[in-house]
Computed example of a mutant assay.
Amino acid sequence: MNILLWHVHGSWTTAFVQGPHTYLVPVTPDRGPDGRGRAETFAWPSAVREVPPEQLANTPVDLLVLQRPHEEELATRWLGGRRPGKDVPTVYLEHNAPRGDVPDTRHPAADRRDLTLVHVTHFNRLFWESGSTRTAVIEHGIVDPGHQYTGRLPRAAVVVNEPVRRRRYVGTDLLPLLAEAAPLDVFGMRTEGLAAHLGLTSDRCRTADLPQERLHGAMAERRLYLHPVRWTSLGLSLLEAMHLGMPVVALATTEAVEAVPAGAGTLSTRPEVLARAARHYLAEPEAAARDGARARQAALERYGLKRFLDDWERLIAEVRS
């Protein structure tokens, strides 16, 4: 089966393309947002094929996965007039929690009877207003990086992209308080200048943009994983940290309250409680390792790759029937 999707979310796509199909990803000469092609920093199998837009009109497509509103128009044009949902079985995959007039934010695919809207968390489905569109939830799956945790460095790992620009969405404003409890190593894209922006010394807040093959090892050396995010979808970095065997200290917001069970870390809406938990893990490395082991077991059970791919196979069969 040929599945057409755009390379939008590298971590999610890495799990999705582990399935038994051929995955077509558009590629343009500039490798811009609508034609990134194959990932450069994630390990994708050979079943992922780059296809220039001009070749798609003559390429069989058995399923179309939309992830952004404008992709429907692109697909219609690039597929030679074949219409998503009418001529090609289609799902719209929503990665994000709604923004704007929450909880009344209307989804771009609302009131569509010709496609299925797939959410990656139950929280997202609850908060998006989708009208009569059929909805489903397929929770994340993770390609298991293995139990790499050592926690040898008494620091907290944070993974967030563009923390200066995204500010309150990702809890950037909470980092000075949390940095008093545990020095932070912030990994992600466009993190440069964060310490100066927050008025922190370089020792209390360090940043690095690491390729995926180095990121997991660097995270696992830190004593705990800190997730200060207020309002995004469930971060895959949180689930990856749990797979690594890291204890989690996280804001009790969005889907995090479902993902992190008791005994795997600390969840709270009070930043001072998170700071206290971070201090505890820095002082008690054995407790951190025990909670991290429980976090890994919980992540394997709920967010394992096999369950994720099986869920998608069932949905694909339904959509194409």
Rank of each mutant, 00 (worst) to 15 (best):
V25R: 01
V25Y: 01
P26K: 07
P26C: 07
P26I: 09
P26M: 11
P26R: 05
V27N: 02
V27W: 03
V27C: 03
T28N: 05
T28W: 04
T28K: 09
P29C: 12
P29A: 13
D30N: 07
D30I: 01
D30R: 11
R31F: 08
G32E: 08
P33V: 15
P33S: 13
D34L: 15
D34F: 15
D34S: 14
G35V: 13
R36T: 06
R36F: 10
R36L: 15
G37A: 09
R38C: 03
R38V: 01
A39D: 15
A39P: 14
A39R: 10
T41R: 13
F42E: 13
F42N: 12
F42C: 07
F42W: 14
A43C: 10
A43P: 10
W44Q: 07
W44M: 02
W44S: 03
W44I: 01
P45M: 03
P45L: 03
P45V: 05
S46M: 07
S46Y: 03
S46I: 07
A47V: 02
A47R: 01
A47M: 00
V48R: 02
V48H: 02
V48A: 05
R49W: 11
R49E: 14
R49T: 12
E50F: 00
E50R: 00
E50A: 01
V51C: 12
V51S: 09
P52H: 05
P52E: 05
P52N: 06
P53H: 08
P53I: 10
P53K: 07
E54S: 14
E54P: 07
Q55H: 15
Q55M: 12
Q55G: 10
L56S: 11
L56F: 11
A57V: 12
A57E: 11
N58L: 11
N58R: 14
T59P: 02
T59R: 06
P60T: 12
P60A: 12
V61D: 00
V61Y: 00
L63H: 08
L63K: 08
L64D: 03
V65L: 09
